[in-house]
Design a protein around this nucleic acid. Structure first.
Lengths: 194, 194
DNA sequence: GTCTATACACCGATAGAC
DNA sequence: GTCTATCGGTGTATAGAC
């Protein structure tokens, strides 16, 4: 009968300091990579003492997971708001392009390769986003008698995400070969569907 | 006048041991992430002493870069061979799907966020692959009077890579929503073009 | 070419005072 | 809630013997 193991005392997960630490974690991960997201480096970035990290988070793994969960819960709120859009496909495309922090996403995706908690949360978020987007697209297709051509709502949901993410990554890295053509292609296709 | 700084003596970059270390580096990065790619962990994985790493590579950054360069030089050879294919689009699609080690690619892409040498090498490789693929596609379009529809060769080159990479990543993570639809979509589109 | 030994920085995490 | 002090472990990298 697994009982909660003995723990040291801890602070509120929604406190101001806790959020400062999560902000600092995002900055460090974006600029220096997940390997640099240590308790010392994050505390320094937040202007706090290293040991405070362990007052607000059980372990470093917990802190990293909390940082990702804060992002996904905000993103899911946004997705729910946008689901009611009059032109969901256009809205989804613009939303991924403007909100996806590609460098950070690649750090979290790499982290997910070997961090069980983060992987589960990435999968949970990606599954929810894909389903919600596919439903919003399918609803609009029904209501307005649109023609998606060879795209299923799920396939379109996948393509909008994967394309925006890779375009964002390459732009952040200074590589843009074919990008104007791809953006024209998506603008054309989205306008064509309605 | 920058002179090569004084260095400790070093072994051949093409030796058997050197390649064992690069093999071990790939395994560690794939299974445990780039943060685990330390001299101790890699040497242990290769069954060698930690200090040997510094006989074959100047620094850990050099080792990581060498590991990535070995992959890209092999991949570019393959791309050159496949450029002569009778059906380059089909060949490129199948090649990305069968050769891209998605977990490892995400580790190197995340590493590229903050490792200058790796970023430059990633950009060099991606630019070369995109151009070579676009040229192969354009040549085939010319010779056989194909119709790419709204796709430019560069845009198609981009989409084949980004889609195969993200499909591969999600499959490796156990997430497959919409995948059969996306694969059907690409099979259909590629068959349609010719 | 590979070994032993080692310097020194940084890591996660805890104990207990204030 | 935040502090000082500290533990044991691991990191990169070097020196020099064999």
């Amino acid at each position: 009968m697994e009982v909660t193991p003995p723990r040291r005392r801890m602070g509120s997960p929604d406190s101001a300091v806790s959020n400062q630490l999560l902000d600092a974690t995002e900055r460090v991960m974006r600029e220096e990579g997940y390997a640099a997201a240590t308790s010392r480096r994050i505390a320094e970035e937040a202007g706090l003492k290293q040991q405070l990290v362990y007052y607000y988070f059980e372990t470093m793994d917990d802190l990293l997971l909390a940082a990702f969960k804060r992002r996904t819960s905000r993103a899911l709120e946004r997705i729910d708001e946008e689901a009611a859009s009059r032109q969901p496909i256009q809205t989804i495309w613009e939303s991924w392009n403007s909100t996806v922090d590609a460098k950070l996403v690649f750090e979290f995706f790499a982290l997910a390769n070997h961090h069980d908690g983060v992987r589960e949360e990435v999968n949970r978020f990606m599954a929810a986003a894909r389903r919600k987007h596919a439903e919003a697209i399918a609803r609009q297709v029904d209501e307005h008698g649109l023609d998606l051509g060879p795209f299923s709502p799920e396939a379109l949901s996948f393509m909008l995400f994967s394309t925006a993410l890779l375009l964002g990554r390459e732009e952040a890295m200074g590589l843009t070969i074919g990008h104007t053509d791809v953006r024209k292609l998506f603008d054309w296709g989205i306008a064509r569907i309605g």
